[in-house]
């Protein structure tokens, strides 16, 4: 009866499962329903609303100078992006850490996989379901706050505001992908939790330290810096050319890989917010021969896209091959 003859009866087959969009949708919907019933979803919506309103209130109260320049939305984007940069990873990791490991620990993953869903469907459905929780609460918070923000701010730039929302959603998607992928590598929520903590440490502490370490290595001459000339005003009022040294392009690139930097760099592309205050923002004088494409701000979209795709791709490959 069997049409495919096995090459060797002792060989363990590790089949690659297929993806069915209907199944992905069903799993995502279940996961979203499950989450919406928890306090998490409404708590998040309220949190984003309060965050926006509080920052706006602060700007309109203290920021008279900013208001005169008509740059209040820019200031809002600047402050809110600094806060969301730190908060969204936390939320995404907390939302996602139990996505797969939790269901394996309680055994309820057998409910999902007793139904005609493939393991890939489950992973993708979980990614969509969990990121939908974050995205929808962001949208609810931003939409409700828009009314208050527009009323309080002298000038309300809808493009900047929406750009911030869109980038926050994409940024959240990237961290949810990391969280769900890590959650699928273990059946222990304790290990999954530790992995989330590791990610947190990596991008909040280690990544910044890397730049400092390279700076030290450059000063010691272990790695070669790049020389550039800059006009510096001298004491007598004239300007004079000074040769200085900066980190090489590839070290700068490492800095832009951090999802948080990519998030803020991408905002500067979409909005009119000043690029000098957000993300990595390297001075133009550093690049005598033009900025390499991978250090341009638009490249941050590619970096964020890779943060969404790569963790998921690894998880999709690996999760098909494990015993539950």
């Amino acid at each position: 009866m069997s049409t495919d003859t096995a090459t060797g009866s002792g060989e363990t087959t590790a089949p690659s499962s297929s993806i069915n969009l209907e199944s992905v949708r069903a799993v995502a919907k279940k996961d979203f329903q499950d989450a919406v019933r928890s306090w998490m979803f409404w708590g998040l919506s309220v949190f984003f609303f309060v965050l926006l309103v509080a920052v706006t209130g602060t700007i309109s109260y203290f920021g008279e100078e900013i208001a005169q320049q008509g740059a209040t939305t820019e200031a809002l984007v600047l402050f809110v992006s600094q806060i969301t940069r730190l908060v969204i990873p936390l939320i995404a990791l907390i939302l996602g850490w139990k996505a797969i490991a939790g269901e394996r620990e309680t055994g309820s993953i057998k409910i999902l996989l007793s139904l005609p869903h493939s393991r890939k469907d489950v992973l993708l459905g979980k990614l969509l379901g969990r990121s939908a929780v974050l995205s929808v609460s962001l949208i609810v918070g931003f939409a409700l706050a828009a009314v208050v923000v527009a009323a309080l701010l002298g000038s309300f730039d809808i493009v900047d505001y929406v750009a911030l929302l869109v980038m926050a959603i994409i940024y959240g998607l990237a961290y949810t992908s990391i969280a769900v992928a890590l959650s699928s590598i273990t059946r222990s929520t304790t290990i999954a939790g530790a992995a989330m903590f590791g990610v947190f440490i990596l991008f909040y502490i280690v990544w910044n330290a890397i730049q400092t370490v390279f700076q030290l290595l450059m000063n010691r001459g272990t790695i070669d810096g790049v020389s550039y000339t800059q006009e510096v005003p001298a004491a007598d009022g004239t300007t004079q050319q000074m040769t200085m040294e900066r980190l090489p392009d590839w070290v700068l690139f490492i800095n832009t890989i951090d999802p948080g930097n990519a998030f803020q760099n991408a905002i500067t592309v979409l909005s009119s917010s000043g690029s000098s205050e957000l993300g990595t923002s390297f001075p133009e004088v550093w690049f005598a021969n033009g900025v390499p494409f991978y250090l341009e701000n638009w490249f941050s979209f590619i970096i964020l896209l890779l943060w969404i795709v790569v963790p998921m791709a690894i998880a999709l490959y690996r999760f098909d091959r494990v015993d539950l």
Partner: peptide, 28 residues
Amino acid sequence: ELDAQTHSREIRSRTGVLPEGVETYDRL
């Protein structure tokens, strides 16, 4: 009459399963 590894999705679409030692979804 289908290979349990390569045709699992079709098998499960025609099968009803009551798994053992499983928790249902608390919030649903």
